[in-house]
């Protein structure tokens, strides 16, 4: 069996902050504040193998960024252990940096006043690449990420979509084995998102770069990641193939009917069957799988409407994820 390239064991992180004590004066609160501790990450464990594309998702404040920051050496764990490429990110931070790439969607690493190619050169020198290697990698990245049209523009003049492509490209200058992406598609339009996802898939397939990604965008998870981990309140609550998420967390399916003749009335349905959409040309019904199996639900519905076309499908990923968050 292959050894994982990331091994996280019972990892926890606590933060503490001062809070004013009720009934105490400002002087007392200034010098002797009460401290409250928040457990941002609570004893999580998982392993990742080379070449995997992993989504690490959860609602705001769930502990996603904190976990990524511990995996990349920015934060020291309060308890537990992280091994990335057989290194401890907290103690081997500089050594590890040569083998990983990071992109934080809300934070730019590029030099704002200089052309994009200067940022590539900057990172190349930082990673001790030779001048020849920097030239070669810059050429490759400009080509792969289609940056040619704006490679000579100052970074501050790029659109958000262009900038994010450039951020990802810059983080790959040293050909890292793993790339950590924290909300890389935040704020991008649909075209820019698709372009970025396609590029990430491409580097995963061509270079076997492992992808570890946090996102609130369902599209990122669905199209990019073959495995999804869900974290909430600092705890890992699911870790499974992305395709299995809906089966595990959603006990409902949808039946879409196109009536033979325009429907004008919509009779009340038995318990467990709920209208999602009622239009003369399309009726969508949610089936509670705890009460109904699909064939019985369909038979029941066909008793109410004569159908020309029928479609049965699972809940979309967004509903699945909302369901997961709400359940925990």
């Amino acid at each position: 069996m292959k050894t994982p390239i990331v091994q996280v064991t019972s990892l926890s992180k606590n933060f503490s902050y001062p809070v004013p004590k009720q009934g105490k004066g400002w002087l007392s609160n200034l010098f002797f504040p009460e401290r409250r501790t928040v457990q941002a990450v609570e004893s999580i464990s998982f392993a990742i193998h080379a070449g995997e594309r992993v989504a690490f998702i959860g609602p705001n404040g769930a502990g996603k960024s904190t976990t990524i920051k511990m995996m990349t050496g920015i934060l020291f764990p309060s308890e537990g252990e992280v091994r990335v490429l057989d290194m401890n990110p907290a103690t081997d931070r500089k050594k590890l940096a040569y083998h990983i790439g990071t992109v934080f969607g809300q934070r730019s690493q590029l030099l704002p006043n200089l052309p994009l190619t200067d940022s590539f050169e900057f990172f190349g020198v930082m990673y001790d690449l030779s001048s020849e290697d920097i030239r070669r990698r810059t050429k490759e990245l400009v080509q792969t990420f289609e940056l040619g049209d704006f490679a000579q523009q100052p970074v501050r003049k790029l659109s958000l979509g262009q900038r994010m492509r450039a951020e990802v490209a810059a983080s790959l200058i040293h050909e890292p084995q793993i790339i950590f992406l924290d909300e890389p598609t935040i704020g991008l339009d649909v075209v820019a998102k698709k372009s970025l996802r396609d590029l990430l898939l491409r580097i995963n397939q061509e270079k076997k770069t492992t992808i570890f990604l946090t996102s609130h965008d369902v599209g990122d998870i669905e199209t990019l990641c073959d495995r999804t981990m869900v974290i909430n309140h600092g705890k890992l609550i699911a870790d499974m193939p992305t395709s299995e998420l809906s089966k595990q967390f959603i006990s409902e399916k949808f039946i879409s009917l196109v009536p033979k003749e325009h429907a004008e009335t919509f009779p009340p349905l038995p318990e467990g069957l709920t209208y999602e959409e009622t239009q003369p040309t399309q009726i969508i019904v949610r089936v509670d799988l705890a009460r109904w199996d699909v064939p019985s639900a369909l038979t029941s519905l066909l008793g109410y409407f004569e159908a020309e076309d029928i479609d049965i499908y699972n809940a979309d990923m967004e509903s699945v994820i909302r369901h997961v968050y709400e359940r925990t």
């Binding site: 920051k69 990349t72 050496g73 920015i74 931070r93 500089k94 050594k95 940096a97 040569y98 990071t102 934080f104 934070r107 690493q109 930082m126 990673y127 001790d128």
Partner: peptide, 13 residues
């Protein structure tokens, strides 16, 4: 601001 992160992600001192 948290932008100190990038120095910790760098392979340099």
């Amino acid at each position: 601001s948290g932008s100190f992160d990038r120095f910790l992600l760098s392979p340099k001192n």
